[in-house]
Structure formats: C-alpha cells, structure tokens
C-alpha cells in the first residue's frame, strides 16, 4: 500500500463528512421548524423571539450560520439540544457507544454464521445443503427488521417467556441481564446480514473454485480439502471484507429500527426522537456521526484489504 493511497482515502473521509454536513445543514434549514419558537414555546412574544434569534445567529445569512456551525463542530462542539437544553456531544457519544456494542455483536454473530453457511453452500453446489442455504438467504433478505423483531418478541418473549421483551441494561451493572436483553436485538439485526453475506461468500467461492489455479492445484495431486483450505478460502474470503464494510450502511439503518422497537437508548433512538421533535442540532450531529462511523469502517476495511491482498498496486 502506497502512502498515496492512504492519503487519498483519508482525504475521502473528510470530503465525505464535508458533503454530509452540507446535506444535513441544507435539510435542517428547509425543515419548517423555527429553533426560537421551539425554545420559547408557541406563545412567546415576537420581540422575545427576535431577540433570541439575534443571539442564536438565526438572522444571519445561511452560509454564515453554516460557517459558525462547522467551526464549532471542528472544535468538538456539537451545540445544545433544543429539546433538553443539554449539550449534545456527551449524550450522543454515550448513545453511540451502546449502538456500537449492538453493531459489533451483530457483525460478530453474522460472521460466525454467514461464512460457514456460504462455504457449505459453495462446496455442496446444487445439492440439498446449497438449496437450504439459499432458501434461508432468500427468506432472510425479504424480512424487514421490524417484522422479524415483532415476531421474535411475540414468540420468544411473550409466549415462551425465555427472554425479556424490550429494554436495555448496561453490561457494567448487570452483565447477564445485559446479555439477555441484547440477544433478541442482535439476532434481529443479523438476519438480513447473514442472508446477504452468506450469499456473497457462496458466489465468491464458487467463482474461485472455477479458476485455473484451483484446477492446477488439483492436478498437482492436492486433495480437495487442502485445495479448499489453502488455495480457495483465502481468496474467496478477502472480498468479504469489502462486502461487510458496505453492509455497515444497511446495518446502521437496522440499528435505528431495532433500537426503536427494543427501546435501546442508542444513537438510532436519539435520532428518531430528535426527528419527531424536530430537534435540529441533534439531527445534524446524529447524521454526521452515523456517516462518520460508516466512512471510518470503510476506511479500515480498505486498509485491511490493501494489506492482506498484496496483488493490487494502489496508486
């Protein structure tokens, strides 16, 4: 990996965040919500509103407001919530921590299940195992999170009473309680990812198994198992890194729904509450943090890929 590639990818993160900040700011500007009205209530006098607008800088031209907002942002100041009057930064980051816990557990579960499923389907291509896996994956990608979540709660929490239906427990306070509360959300988020990734692993591996070098290895007298382990898996699993990283975008969407359904105080729930309350600074901060998470994950994935796959000469 050349320093050029690294630099280019780093610049891309900044560009991404810049574009996202523009979009978010533009959207929140068009929102039919007046921050001053929100803070003082519907019955405030026009004079009071005007005074507040003046102090908040709301009367300045849009690009000046954007400049102020961006400048504060660069200094780590996300602003204050219109709804709670509290600074946004600390609340958002502790919410992000809870969401990331959920996301990482889901990715972990997905990798544990999706990769073996994909491998089995590929090596048993056209056989029963392959058909079963592909049926599971077709069903998996067709069920939105809110459906799986609702059905899972009905089945495992309401009827069987094996797991708590909703809520969040901090793992530092009650570890086993936290696990019990996380099982359902993690499973729900993983379903679509497992379905998608196992299908991608299958098709990558099928492609690799048809290459000349796999045939050459077999014709050198290597057994099927050795060829699979040593020659095929490595090459087939490398692209999975990129696929998983791109799926993180989808995963973050899933996190929003799942946090809402299971009442987990993560960043997704913060965002939904903010969107419903039209709490502009919180929306701005939340979307930006989401986009940053996605960009950073993809940056790491690209670096990992470049390091693991020495073939590709990046410029």
């Amino acid at each position: 990996m050349s320093p050029n590639y690294l630099l280019k990818r780093l610049l891309m993160i900044f560009y991404t965040l810049f574009v996202v900040s523009l979009i978010v700011f533009a959207i929140t500007q068009v929102l039919p919500a007046d921050a001053a009205v929100m803070m003082l209530g519907e019955h405030a006098t026009p004079e009071a509103l005007d005074a507040l607008r003046q102090t908040m800088g709301l009367n300045a031209p849009v690009w000046v407001q954007y400049g102020h907002w961006l400048w504060a942002l660069l200094q780590g100041d996300f602003g204050t919530s219109l709804r709670t009057g509290q600074p946004i930064g600390p609340a958002m980051f502790s919410a992000l921590g809870r969401s990331l816990l959920l996301a990482f557990l889901s990715i972990g579960l997905m990798l544990i299940l999706a990769i073996p499923l994909g491998i089995i389907a590929a090596i048993r291509r056209g056989k029963v195992a392959d058909i079963v896996v592909s049926l599971i994956s077709y069903l998996g990608v067709a069920l939105p999170e809110f459906v799986t979540a609702t059905v899972a709660v009905l089945l495992l929490a309401d009827w069987l009473k094996w797991l708590p239906p909703t809520g969040y427990v901090s793992p530092t306070e009650d570890f086993f309680g936290a696990i019990a509360h996380l099982i359902l959300p993690v499973c729900v988020i993983s379903v679509i990812l497992i379905a998608h990734v196992s299908r991608m692993v299958r098709s990558e591996l099928v492609d690799v198994l048809h290459t000349d070098y796999i045939r050459a290895a077999r014709l050198k007298g290597m057994s099927r198992g050795t060829v699979l382990r040593r020659h095929a898996l490595r090459n087939a699993l490398l692209p999975t890194i990129t696929i998983v990283a791109l799926d993180v975008g989808y995963l973050l969407g899933g996190v929003i729904v799942v946090e809402e359904i299971f009442a987990i105080p993560g960043i997704g729930r913060e965002l939904i509450v903010a969107i419903q309350a039209r709490d502009l600074p919180v929306i701005q901060a939340g979307v930006l943090i989401m986009a940053a998470t996605y960009s950073i994950v993809n940056f790491i994935a690209d670096m990992l890929y470049a390091v693991l796959d020495k073939r590709i000469q990046y410029d």
Binding site: T16, V20, I23, I272, I275, V287, M290, S295, N298
Partner: peptide
C-alpha cells in the same frame, strides 16, 4: 463519484426518514 460515495454514507433508511420529515 466521490460525492455519490459521500451521500451513500448516510444509511438509506435515515436518509428517507430525514426527507419524509422535511
């Protein structure tokens, strides 16, 4: 394309939520 990539870093669901709210 870089701009398109940047827009794609906002999850589709979140994007849709924002636009609907707007």
């Amino acid at each position: 394309m870089r701009t398109v990539d940047a827009v794609m870093s906002i999850p589709s669901l979140l994007f849709a939520l924002l636009v609907v709210n707007l």
